[in-house]
């Protein structure tokens, strides 16, 4: 097996070709060996002999995970803006691959007041739907407890969205990311309905469903997702669960983490620290 992996695919073809040539002397035997060679090569491809999906990145060697430390989040919304730019998401108040929620418990109230950057008051504070800012609306109120919670696609182990997709346009990769094939999606939005977390939306430009990919184009190049990269306070953590020393492995090991809506059975892969019962 090791030998096989060491051989580049070109070298392997050459080797098999020579084998075929040698056997060619035996006439009909050659055809058989050639066919065998072809079969072997096809097998080698799916066995992970060649690196997939890119020459420098083998998805069988990673298993990605994401952590959110809500005790650190300052609600600056730089992640939301960075995500929109990184992934060319429509710059309005209704399409987000990631967003931040604010929970504020006022004195004498049982339920928290919840808003996100989408709230009209916050849009008024930023001055534009394309810019993001939390209005300081509770500045003069008696606040008992308040915190921010970043949200994004949970890249569930049992994704309800993948289950309901009629075509196979959305799927779970070997490294644990739920992706959408924008050239294959028919735009029925069944997955938008199925996601309990509201992580999916309809892309009005491409007429397909869209959502967070954990910046698959970045993580396969050794970079961090844009939101993690941009977060000034380290509230967002990302890494390889296979690597026991990765930031996410340490985050999970060193904290008592929880996931959102565990009762759905979706088994999310975004782990939270510092949220409370009203967060779902």
């Amino acid at each position: 097996m090791k030998l096989q992996r060491d051989l580049s695919s070109a070298a392997r073809r050459e080797f098999l070709g020579k084998l075929g040539l040698a056997a060619g002397c035996a006439g009909t035997v050659a055809a058989g060996v050639g066919a065998l060679g072809a079969v072997q090569e096809a097998e080698a491809k799916t066995d992970g002999g060649a690196s997939f999906p890119t020459p420098d990145y083998d998805w069988t060697k990673h298993r990605w995970g994401y952590g959110v430390d809500a005790t650190k989040c300052i609600g600056c919304l730089r992640c939301v803006e960075a995500c929109k730019k990184e992934n060319h998401v429509a710059g309005d108040a209704h399409h987000f691959r990631t967003w931040v929620e604010r929970y504020v418990y006022l004195e004498g109230e049982d339920k928290p007041r919840i808003d996100s950057q989408q709230d009209p008051v916050n849009i008024a504070a930023s001055g534009s739907e394309k810019e993001y800012r939390f209005a300081n609306r509770y500045k003069d109120a008696k606040v008992e407890k308040a915190f921010f919670v970043p949200k994004l696609c949970n890249h569930c182990t049992h994704p309800a969205c993948v289950q309901v997709c009629p075509t196979g346009a959305t799927y779970k990769t070997k490294d644990g990311v739920v992706l959408i094939d924008h050239t294959y999606c028919i735009g029925c939005q069944y997955c938008v309905q199925a996601c309990p977390y509201g992580a999916r939306f309809f892309n009005d430009v491409e007429h397909v469903t869209d959502k967070c990919t954990w910046c698959y184009h970045r993580i396969t190049k050794g970079l961090q997702p844009a939101c993690v990269e941009i977060c000034p306070v380290g509230a967002r953590v990302f890494g390889d669960l296979n690597d026991k020393q990765s930031p996410i492995s340490l985050f999970i090991r060193n904290n008592r983490v929880q996931v959102l809506k565990p009762e759905t059975g979706n088994a999310p892969n975004v782990y939270y620290v510092g949220i409370d019962k009203e967060v779902n």
């Binding site: 289950q163 309901v164 997709c165 009629p166 075509t167 196979g168 346009a169 294959y184 999606c185 028919i186 735009g187 029925c188 939005q189 069944y190 309809f202 491409e206 007429h207 397909v208 469903t209």
Partner: peptide
């Protein structure tokens, strides 16, 4: 549908876990 011209994708490669397929 966002892409009615792709509607047959769900019959060409029907995803068996999907009620819609």
């Amino acid at each position: 549908l966002g892409h009615p011209e792709r509607a047959f994708n769900s019959t060409i490669t029907p995803h068996l876990t999907s009620a819609m397929a």
